[in-house]
Design a protein around this nucleic acid. Structure first.
Lengths: 119, 119
DNA sequence: TATTAAATAGGAATGATTCCTATTTATATA
DNA sequence: TATATAAATAGGAATCATTCCTATTTAATA
């Protein structure tokens, strides 16, 4: 089943690949795979909660890490780094101050990563 | 100049309108305006820092509020609310722990807004 | 094995956005 | 003011990621 190949492709790439990249990658194993199949399986994997989708400048990236975490995008090398926070008090802040009920969030920082940042 | 009309259209809409919405809105004043003009002017306004762009499910929304603030998206009515935080210690957390240099960020919470949330 | 359901390839269709070009409008300069 | 130059525009074609459609293949089940 191609769905598993799509899944392992995402998991093995420690990056946050696009549908296009995944397509090319899986194609190495199954040359006849089609774009439709990749997208359909990506959708199903997202629905099952096995992967996450990250919209970046209007194009979708996929993330095999479904544990709660955040993303840092380097403006120079365009790498996407994961990071975790010690406390996420902004959730309770918003619930208390604005009386919304928060069920999810996405935090994305941008800047220069430690590799590009030549101090 | 149409650029100003595009700008005031965004400012007057207290929402976070899409290019499509802005196009329709400005069209009321200038029926001959084209999509190309709207997009070109939106791009220039973003470049000048007069508006901000928010990517949401792969389509661009525009925000006339350029002061630092965050967004809450209601899953039920799809409204986008602005909110501010008292402290944003996640920036220093990431700079200290991951040694990246942070120059900007985007925080987006999702959930049920106080209007949809019938307690 | 026969029957039914799910998955697939391939390509067409869609929709947001960008690009291109001839024309119009604004700006600067003599 | 008249003229040259630059910026802005309309309109539509082109692009690109994504979705949709359909005939065919594969898997699951009785």
């Amino acid at each position: 089943m191609q769905r598993e190949l799509v899944h392992t492709s995402i998991m093995s790439s420690k990056d946050h690949p696009t549908a296009d990249w995944i397509f090319s990658d899986v194609k190495k194993e199954i040359p006849k795979i089609s774009f439709g199949t990749v997208y359909r399986n990506l959708g199903q994997l997202v629905e099952k909660g096995l992967i996450r989708i990250i919209q970046l400048d209007g194009i979708a990236h996929y993330d095999g890490n479904v544990a709660p975490h955040n993303h840092f995008i380097c403006n120079e090398c365009n790498s996407i780094y994961d990071f975790e926070l010690d406390n996420e008090d902004f959730i309770s802040q918003v619930e208390v101050k604005n009386h919304h009920h928060v069920s999810g969030y996405q935090l994305m920082l941008t800047g220069t990563c430690n590799k590009c940042n030549i101090n």
